[in-house]
Design a protein around this nucleic acid. Structure first.
Lengths: 252, 252
DNA sequence: TGTTGTGAACCCTTTCACAGCA
DNA sequence: TGCTGTGAAAGGGTTCACAACA
């Protein structure tokens, strides 16, 4: 797997531990010299951001940790801990300013600049992703859609024209893509991953049901529906077994 | 949290209902009332299963924990620990029998019976899921595909005909679906979730970018590409910042 | 000999309780 | 008074080293 930071270089922009440094108020939005957000916490930030964005759309200006936690499906101490890794952006006795907090989370996630995404594979899945409204809306722009099938190359999908995957390297260079999504059959995923890495892509979202091998400095995340269903099956079978055992116990 | 839960004994699967069960020896694949697999471990079992299935297809009969771990992208102590929660299915000095081990993992996950899946939403994503080969092959059968759009209702997708979501309850009953996949816009996801729960569905895989609220006995898992991309963005931005800091340090 | 299975140490995550502050 | 921010405790997960054993 190409994650596991493992190395803690201490390059973390000086050591402003913020430990009691109340003078340092809110840092100017921008460079956001954040320090290492724990992975478990990082996984939840996008959820908070989405909830906050929805609240913003509803005209809600302030929110308490209880309310936000409720809407995000976590408990409030966990939420506050998570937010504390970013900084102290709330007001005691009051709560959080929705607009300000969502801005801070966006900054922490690196969404202040727009990421240029190439989608490799233009089957139903690739098209669904290309058309996904959540993409374009916030921080991500789909700049290329590629496929190997001569029948679909050249077709238009939304604003995009499907490019031949043969010219992957040229397309990546021309579009200056800095992220890639793999929505291709499992058999060709590793090969395409290699080509992406060779072209300098270091962030890959993989929908193919294979474990990709890549250098450690390449970040790969996997989305896999079969895996998710199998985990659901485990729980379902388990509670089913419990019900049967219970019934047997009662009948005894 | 007052569960008695005796500190785990030696073996993982004890409590056979004792109905004419053999004594020692390999347990008959079956109801395996297994004992609580830790969530973190559970998340990895599908990966192992997939790798093993691939090996089986390649005619590989035996595998060591090192080889399997390598292929699954984890380290070998972790793999062995994970497998130990299921039982002792390896042979010391030799390794694991690929066919046997994959059978045991399948059983542990509850894939011995076929789960009947209803897919709600027949857009590109829903169709991609309905046509996903990994579904039918591995313990899951798509038994219904539903949509709200009158223009697509009645269309055929593979073996399926798209049903009107208005008759969701009737379709679930007729097809005896016991799992559901939500591939619908965020705005209608909670409403459909409620209807699924009302109809007795307790396992839901949610692709809509919302946090669904449901009773505790309903298992919900979420798949969300926007979330995944945002996490990738964090890492990308971070290593970018590190490179810049490094360059500044060298220039100093 | 070679590899599995596992207690124990270590590390990360979550929870709790309350100090700190508007 | 009310809600945030955070040390400290509790709870899991991962790693390690090695005992067990074909």
């Amino acid at each position: 797997m190409a994650s596991e930071d493992a190395r803690s270089r201490r390059t973390a922009l000086e050591r402003d531990t913020g430990n009691g440094s109340k003078s340092a108020g809110a840092p100017p939005a921008g460079a956001a010299a954040q320090r290492h957000i724990p992975p478990a916490s990082l996984d939840r930030l996008p959820v908070y951001l989405r909830v906050l964005t929805a609240m913003l759309g509803d005209g809600i200006e302030r929110v308490s940790s209880d309310e936000l936690a409720e809407a995000a499906g976590v408990n409030s101490p966990k939420l506050r801990k998570d937010l504390s890794y970013l900084g102290s952006y709330g007001t005691r006795g009051v709560g959080y300013d929705v607009a300000y907090l969502s801005g801070q989370i966006s900054a922490a996630l690196g969404l202040t600049l727009t990421w240029r995404v190439a989608i490799v594979g233009a089957g139903n899945l690739g098209r669904a992703l290309a058309g996904y409204p959540g993409f374009g809306s916030r921080g991500f722009e789909v700049v290329a859609l590629l496929d190997a099938d001569p029948m679909v190359i050249g077709q238009e999908v939304g604003w995009l024209r499907i490019s031949p995957v043969d010219s992957l390297e040229a397309v990546l260079a021309k579009t200056r893509a800095n992220m890639a999504v793999l929505a291709v059959p499992a058999e060709v995923a590793q090969d395409l991953c290699d080509r992406l890495v060779e072209s300098g892509i270091t962030s890959i979202l993989n929908f193919a049901p294979v474990v990709l091998q890549a250098p450690d400095d390449v970040q790969i995340r996997k989305v896999d529906m079969a895996t998710e269903l199998q985990i659901l099956a485990y729980h379902a079978q388990r509670s089913q077994a419990l019900r049967i055992a219970e019934r047997a116990r009662l009948a005894r």
